[in-house]
Every structure is written in structure tokens, then in C-alpha cells.
Design a protein around this nucleic acid. Structure first.
Lengths: 213, 213
DNA sequence: AGCAATGCTATTGTATACAAATATTGTGGG
DNA sequence: CCCACAATATTTGTATACAATAGCATTGCT
């Protein structure tokens, strides 16, 4: 993407993630254009991208609002993510090369270090966790899967809640990553699928426990 | 969508489906704008939509080409579709109301009639088949699932091959729909999931058999 | 002849003006 | 007081002009 569109995208995304534009609030192209210091054209492009990534929703009359995720929506999102990411893991198991596998191991070493700290370094955990999952998705070598999962991971509602995970849950997550690494090393697609399914579904329940009502 | 954007979308999609714009051929905004009789702005919107639906691909330098599906791509598409549509069927089984269920039965009656004709009315089969699947997806009540499946069903490569299905395969398809109807009537989510998985995967193999090399 | 640099052409990116559609406000009638 | 309808304001849709950038070919050098 080009400069102005990128800027608009980052700016609007920031408004949503920071909470300055709370869920359900209306967004108008012109107001956003003013805020971002660009014209409406790149704002429109950015909004289409944010719509695809489910940050915003569009009514039948083309008006745009910040997405408002219900608990059911979040559950459904995790269910879809579990299916698709497990599929990605299964594909990756038979395709991943040693370089990517090493990168994965390296990632989890850093995750374990972040978790072992007191207090746990949640920001570092989240960064390397995202990297870990992205390496697997890339190794699955399926552009369609990549596109679809981009719309599911890193949702605002998930990010806002991430800081509330307990140290025990963070440790558990790192252990599950280790199991995944074993499945990859064994080139066992079904093991990888099962491990990833469990990993995401456990995360789903952790989220429910940590989420504010 | 608005008039000009709709028109551009339909026109470009037609070019791709008819083969006038063959896979791999480059598309430029201005040429498309001329063909469609609109300006570049609605063409850009239409291209974004077609990109999301995987009809076209965009290079890293923002140039657009008609998508070129390899056999592996098609296999992967069917695998994803089987997972997601089976999930939709499972959700639909416990949510579908009697009106939608009747609509589904009505659809399959027409499908059976189209199949029974000699020669089989493939166009009618395809139309009602699409309706059948769409009713299920809608009954699943998951906007995310709806969006994702929109990118997988009715791909050009699938449409081009549809006419080659054998009468036996068309009949088999109608029978599988009947099984799905039973699962819905019984409100059995796992039965519905299994029936849909089998239905799509069988279709995948039919496609491979019918597809030209 | 092969390669690189440079200018030219084609294509996409952005801004802006205006048209169309949608929401809102106010006013009159019941 | 409430509802319907009309006038008005707001917002999105489209066209067009111009800017920036990527691709291409020509030319000059080694």
C-alpha cells in the first residue's frame, strides 16, 4: 500500500484499538480524512481493508461503524480460527523447512523467557506469539488461508484483553507451543492439527475467563 | 453497492467467467473503466471486491491480473470449503427455522427435477444448488462465515467445469442434499457436519475427474 | 555484444468538485 | 401529544485532473 493509504489505515486502526473510537460509534469518511490529514480517497481504501479485517462494519446503506463484538461473536471467531489454524498446522507439518523450524524454536525460547520473568513480559509474549503463529501460517503455503486468518487473528477485542491473562495461562501456552514443535519435527500432520486445535480452544476459554462482562 | 460499482463488478466478473480475460492476463483500471463505461473510481472498488473473492490477484507493485488457479489451489479451495461449510451446516442444524427448512426442501425438489430430465438441465441444477447452499450458510447466522465462504464458492474455475459433471454425479449430489435435509430435520449438528463434509469432498473428486488438464 | 543508466510511457495514487442518496430536523395536521 | 411529510443537512458515490511511481526501451559506454 501507498503512503497516504497506509497512514490512514494505521491512524484509524489506532483510534479503534486505543478506544478513542469506541465500538458502535459511527465513522465518516470526511472526519477521518481530516484526522489523518489525507483526502477521502485513501480513507475509503483504508476502510475497505479495515472492513475485511472486521475492525469496522458497514450497514446496508453504506454507513460505517466501529465493530461491536458480542460474546457469541468472539466464540465463533475462536471456533473458526481453531479450524483454520489447525488446518494450517497440518499443512505446515509436512512442508516446513529446517530454517522455519529453527525460527519457530527461537520464537518459543523468547516466549518462555518472557513468561519466566516476574512479572511476565506480556508485550514480549504477544509479539513473539504472533510471530510464532505467523511462521506456521506462512509454512502452510496457502494464500487463501493466509488471507482468511488475517481477518481473525489480532482482533481489537482480543488485544484489549490480552494483558489480563494469568501467568499460569501464559506458561501453558508456551508448553503447547513446545508440543507443536515436536509434532512439526516428527512431520506428523494430524498431531500438529490436534495440538493446534487444543491450543486455540484453550486460548478461547482463557479469553472468556479474562474478558470483562 | 451503488449502480456504477455494481455495473463494473458485473462486467469485469463477466469478462473473467466468459474467458475473454483469460487467467494470468493483466487488467488495467483505465481499460476496464472504458469497457464498463464508468470512471476509474468504481472500477477500483469493484477490483477490491473481486480481489477479496479471489477472481483477481494483486502483485506487490499493485498491478492486477486475472487469477490463475493450479490444481493444488483448487484442492486447497475445496478442503477449506469443506471445513467451513461443514461448520456452517452444524450451526444451521440447531438454528434453522421451518420456513428455511421448507425453502431447502423446495430447492432440492427442483434440483431433482433438473437432474431427472434428459438431458439434465445443468443450468437449473447450478442455480438451485447455489441457492440450497446459500440458505444453509445464512441459517448458520455467522457474518464471518458468510464473508469467508463468499470467497470460496462459485470460483470461475469451478463454473467452467460444472457443465462436465456426469448425470450420475448430479443424481448423487441430489441424494446427498436429501441426507442433509434429514440431518436438519433431526436437528443433529454432527450429522449435518458429516453429511456436508462428504458432500463437498465428493464434489472435489468429481471436479478432478471432470477438469481438463 | 552485453550491460547499465537515463529518459519516456504506462499505470496507479491522491485530491477535489460535484451528484446522488440518506438521515435529520422541523412543521403541520390529526 | 404523536405521526406523517417535507425541507434541509450530512454523507457517500462518481468523475476528472494531476502527481507519483513502476515498467520499458533506447542509447551510450565498456
Amino acid at each position: 500500500m501507498s503512503r497516504a493509504t497506509d497512514r490512514a489505515y494505521a491512524e484509524i486502526r489506532g483510534l479503534i484499538l486505543s478506544g478513542d473510537a469506541p465500538p458502535g460509534s459511527p465513522l465518516t469518511e470526511e472526519a477521518l480524512a481530516d484526522i489523518c490529514g489525507v483526502s477521502r480517497t485513501p480513507v475509503r481504501d483504508a476502510l475497505r481493508r479495515l472492513e475485511a479485517e472486521l475492525y469496522v462494519v458497514r450497514t446496508d446503506t453504506q454507513r460505517i461503524y466501529v465493530a461491536n463484538w458480542s460474546h457469541d461473536d468472539v466464540d465463533e471467531m475462536f471456533a473458526l480460527r481453531a479450524m483454520l489454524e489447525a488446518h494450517a498446522a497440518a499443512r505446515a507439518a509436512t512442508r516446513i523447512d529446517s530454517v522455519a523450524l529453527d525460527a519457530l524454536r527461537d520464537c518459543n525460547v523468547r516466549i518462555e523467557a518472557a513468561v519466566a520473568r516476574d512479572p511476565a513480559d506480556v508485550a514480549a509474549f504477544l509479539t513473539d506469539n504472533r510471530r510464532f503463529h505467523q511462521i506456521i501460517i506462512d509454512a502452510a503455503e496457502s494464500p487463501r488461508l493466509t488471507t482468511m486468518l488475517a481477518a481473525l487473528v489480532e482482533q481489537p477485542v482480543v488485544r484489549r484483553t490480552a494483558a489480563r491473562y494469568s501467568p499460569g495461562e501464559l506458561r501453558r501456552s508456551a508448553q503447547e507451543h513446545a508440543a507443536l514443535l515436536q509434532a512439526f519435527a516428527a512431520r506428523d500432520a494430524e498431531w500438529a492439527r490436534a495440538a493446534m486445535t487444543g491450543h486455540i480452544r484453550r486460548a478461547s476459554h482463557s479469553f472468556r475467563a479474562a474478558a470483562p462482562d
